[in-house]
């Protein structure tokens, strides 16, 4: 167990430090990189409690796709760093309030499990179910008990995606595009004209 404990504290410490650096780093690109580190170490924590499926999905979805797009956008922005710092005090109360609300919620959730399991109605769910890989366990619960919620989430995401495309899509005139089909359907008869040219004469 000693190795697991050491690994846990290592990952937990890195996660917290990285999380802090996300808001403390001066350079926004560094912030995103710290965010990625935080995601990655949280995936490590998931592995430690035996939730390997969630861990891998966290890495694939958040680190492999979402954070790449974050980084992509942040890298391309032309940011004035001093300007970025100016609104700090202005937004501090709102940010602090949200942080406090989240902290209280977390304390309530964890505290109930810790101090009064009978109030919560059930104990802390175990990541490792007996005799079943947690991919299987998750599949079983998502596609039976929560199938409507799951489908609804999918539909909402689809609508959000279509909405984003509709809002940002614009057709500009004069853009050159390659049309593969019209290229394929070109044939020599309509595009090439063979002319016989007599010597010493032009066309």
């Amino acid at each position: 167990m000693i190795l697991q404990t050491i690994t846990f504290y290592l990952f937990a410490a890195i996660t917290i430090a990285a999380g802090f650096m996300v808001i403390a780093a001066r350079n926004p690109v560094h912030s995103v990189l710290y965010l990625i580190l935080a995601f990655f170490t949280s995936a490590g924590l998931f592995v430690l409690i035996g939730a390997e499926f969630i861990a891998m999905i966290l890495v694939i979805v958040y680190v492999g796709a979402v954070a790449v797009l974050f980084l992509f956008v942040v890298m391309m922005l032309d940011i004035n760093f001093t300007e970025l710092r100016q609104g700090f005090l202005q937004y501090l109360p709102i940010g602090g309030l949200i942080g406090l609300a989240l902290l209280i919620e977390l304390i309530m959730v964890v505290g109930v499990w810790q101090f009064g399991p009978e109030v919560a109605g059930h104990a802390i769910p175990q990541a490792t179910t007996n005799g079943m890989t947690n991919t299987e366990a998750l599949g079983n619960i998502i596609y039976t008990q929560y199938v409507y919620a799951f489908q609804a989430a999918g539909v909402i995401l689809l609508i959000a995606m279509i909405g984003a495309i509709v809002l940002t899509h614009r057709t500009r005139p004069g853009v050159k595009k390659q049309r593969i089909s019209s290229q394929v359907y070109r044939d020599p008869k309509t595009t090439i004209e063979v002319k016989k040219i007599k010597p010493g004469q032009g066309i």
Partner: peptide, 25 residues
Amino acid sequence: DINVGILYLFAISSLGVYGIIMSGW
């Protein structure tokens, strides 16, 4: 020999982009 081996490979290969994007930046 982990249960989610193929997902692990997929996750690691999807991380590969960071080396390139970070070096570029």
